[in-house]
């Protein structure tokens, strides 16, 4: 593989920024069950807290049963992974996610010290791979080939 140039690093870092913004905006939107699967292909594999889901249909199924979400990305990173051309990208994201209405959705009798409804810490790792269907002359298209999510706090 050719050596990484500063420009390459800038490109993949910008791509990761674009991806994370787009991905979580879509995830938190009202049309997520229709829209989020577009980031995946039928060969994509996903685990959500240890439960596997396969392909676009799997992502759709997962989201159709998901309470409303609000993600806050606090940290993310991205590498071009050596060994493929154009490179695969590994993106890891750390942040918090509120489900449902958050603490405001708890019944009035809920003790103030309860963690119920509070944001959880999540961590998600994506493997993004180039889409061979990219139209020449347009930006190289990528899709999510692998996706591991865990609640970690």
């Amino acid at each position: 593989m050719t050596t990484l140039t500063k420009n390459d690093i800038h490109i993949v870092s910008t791509a990761a920024e674009h991806f994370t913004r787009l991905y979580y905006t879509t995830y938190d939107s009202s049309t997520r069950a229709d829209d989020l699967p577009n980031f995946y292909r039928d060969s994509s594999a996903v685990t959500w807290n240890g439960t596997p889901f396969q392909g676009k249909a799997g992502v759709r199924e997962l989201l159709s049963k998901m309470p409303p979400t609000k993600h806050e990305v606090q940290s993310f990173d991205c590498h071009p992974v050596p060994g493929a051309q154009p490179p695969s990208l590994m993106v890891s994201v750390s942040g918090n996610v509120t489900h449902g209405k958050g603490p405001a959705g708890n019944p009035a009798a809920t003790p103030a010290k309860s963690v119920d409804g509070q944001p959880r810490v999540f961590h998600q790792t994506f493997m993004l791979v180039p889409d061979p269907a990219t139209v020449p002359g347009e930006p190289q298209k990528y899709y999510v080939n692998g996706d591991i999510l865990r609640f970690v706090g």
Binding site: I11, V12, T14, A15, H18, F19, L22, Y23, T26, S29, T31, D34, D35, N38, F39, L89, D131, E138, P139, Q140, K141, Y142, Y143
Partner: peptide, 11 residues
């Protein structure tokens, strides 16, 4: 961007 994704527009 030089790397793009299938955005929700396509849905």
């Amino acid at each position: 961007v030089k790397i793009a994704f299938d955005t929700p527009l396509a849905s």
